[in-house]
């Protein structure tokens, strides 16, 4: 935390080299949040840039009560939410807590040619995740790719920890069901 405080103070004092280091350290995290939530490729990089400009402008308000990465991810998430709200994009599907199935999603049928190309679990996962609601996509990414805790995700998304856990469980179950409905086990898990 001492290093973070020193880094933040240097940036606040106008040291742009220190801020460049912050960008380099957190750009992957920010891109995960933004790219998962924003489907339009042309908007993605602009939003990532806006996130870091906001980080720079609001760094004086960072209170060191959380990790810097959590605070930056929260700004990224809120920036995306504002963007999606302006575009009136679906954030969370109308899922009932009981018996939600993959049919709830607007899944696109995979064409045979596409299927032949998508012989890699990673590509198949990407395709299925991209069809999930933004909240689910974000939680899956923050937990598995960025290895964040329920507590950190809860802070970033401003959701109770129980809701985060519930969304995460449902997202994984739906993902597994979707994959198994389209592919043979041997195709997926080998």
């Amino acid at each position: 935390m001492g290093d973070t405080r020193s880094l933040v103070n240097r940036i606040l004092a106008g040291n742009t080299r220190a801020f460049k280091a912050v960008i380099q350290e957190h750009q992957r995290l920010v891109s995960h949040v933004v790219f998962r939530m924003i489907s339009n490729e042309t908007d993605r990089e602009d939003i990532c840039q806006d996130v870091f400009v906001k980080v720079y402008q609001n760094l004086g308000d960072f209170n060191f009560e959380s990790k810097l990465s959590t605070w930056i991810a929260k700004i990224a998430y809120n920036t995306c939410i504002n963007f999606l709200e302006k575009k009136k994009t679906l954030l969370v599907g109308d899922f009932s807590s009981e018996g939600d199935t993959f049919d709830t999603f607007s899944t696109k049928d995979t064409l045979p040619d596409e299927s032949a190309e998508k012989n890699d679990l990673s590509i198949r996962l990407q395709a299925e995740i991209s069809e999930m609601p933004a909240h689910f996509r974000t939680i899956l990414t923050l937990y598995h790719l960025d290895e964040m805790s329920y507590n950190e995700i809860s802070e970033i998304m401003q959701l109770p920890q129980g809701t985060v856990k519930s969304y995460l469980f449902r997202a994984r179950r739906l993902l597994k069901e979707k994959l198994l409905s389209k592919y043979q086990k041997e195709e997926l898990w080998n």
Binding site: V53, H144, L145
Partner: peptide, 18 residues
């Protein structure tokens, strides 16, 4: 999920932000 390639921004991204 853990071994997802993730997303990469262009190498010039930090300069673009600055």
């Amino acid at each position: 999920l853990k071994n997802d390639q993730g997303f990469d921004l262009a190498a010039s991204f930090p300069q673009a932000v600055l």
